[in-house]
Design a protein around this nucleic acid. Structure first.
Lengths: 190, 190
DNA sequence: GCCGCTTCCTACACACTATAGGCAAATGAC
DNA sequence: GTCATTTGCCTATAGTGTGTAGGAAGCGGC
């Protein structure tokens, strides 16, 4: 009966690759089963449902992305840290579009609370410590920064920048500069 | 045989309502058929496929949203126009989450070119004329602004702001203020 | 070798997409 | 009014995906 050696972990990793190749929506029980050359029903011993499979991919992506961001901001501060932080997100989204989409997958509250999502929030706050913002400005800045990075990355991925000749990288650098200037201007402003 | 009076337009409108109620992913041929108390096969006389149905909803949402934005910025300029522009997007997303998601639906290039999407781009540029930016700064600003608004709205919709007590409206106002200050600082800076 | 557990299988019930072809209601000609 | 045509919705069917139940083959411990 030629055992393939399925594991929840292997299915999750394969799901992540499938997401990058065909999009996160293509991550289904039967698609992954086909890649292992196995019947779909066999996967149900390892994952509870398609939703469960996707949740696994989402958690993996959040973890990977948090690791990269952590490495990017380690030992840096101020503008340099901001640029590295933003670049970590953008580079990951460009290298692994499916995983990036997976990281956006809606998790139920307690799964989210136990995920690497909290590390993302902590790192964003850590980054902003360099700008010395008092509350509630710091929270405002966390939200603005998160929205900015995510929004830019998503519009770029969706092809929204394809109709103009201007290099997206230049727009990105310009935006990061603007963010830095904005945050510095608001330091101590509470 | 009790004709219900199906039309492509009625199916599209109903799809938009379904999207707001159950999410854009719930917009399927059979779900809409159920709402009209009709067999799924009957819909295929009016829409070519599920994708076609969703495209219709997306075009409707883009149109509606463009109308609202146009109304919001009419007769305003500068900071006031920026605030109204941003509020139009956010308010629409909060009132019609499914349609907002639909507006993000990936259209094939020629459908996109014939959609209200181009009005959105034109209005964004029109808004930025008030800040007197030279190229390529204007394009950078268009991208930044688009990303910012979309990213903030999406994170808010995804519940990303639920873990902190700070009022999202306050963060929104703070962000719009910061954007305005930043754009003014960059006027003529080419 | 044999027992027991795990892994993967077949079989099945059900839902959604999509096509083909049928029948009846609405519409227009007269 | 009635008849023919068009249109609208139907049934039937094939294909694919999800998820459950139960069966058989592999693998380890002894």
């Amino acid at each position: 009966m030629a055992r393939v050696g399925l594991t929840r972990e292997r299915l999750t990793r394969d799901g992540a690759e499938l997401a990058d190749e065909q999009g996160f929506d293509a991550v289904t029980v039967s698609a992954v089963a086909r890649r292992f050359d196995v019947k779909a029903a066999s996967l149900y011993a390892h994952v509870k449902s398609t939703d469960d499979l996707r949740t696994g991919v989402a958690l993996l992506a959040l973890e990977e992305l948090a690791d990269r961001v952590a490495e990017a901001i380690a030992g840096r501060s101020g503008r340099e840290a901001l640029a590295a932080f933003a670049a970590a997100y953008r580079d990951y989204a460009r290298a692994h579009p499916g995983r990036y989409a997976a990281a956006r997958f809606r998790l139920d509250p307690q799964t989210a609370a136990a995920s690497a999502g909290v590390r993302h929030a902590q790192m964003t706050r850590a980054l902003l410590r360099g700008y010395d913002l008092a509350e509630p400005d710091q929270t405002h800045a966390v939200r603005m920064l998160g929205g900015m990075v995510h929004g830019f990355v998503e519009l770029e991925a969706a092809g929204g920048f394809a109709h103009t000749a201007v290099d997206p990288q230049a727009s990105w650098d310009w935006t990061v500069d603007a963010l830095d200037a904005m945050l510095r201007a608001r330091a101590h402003a509470a």
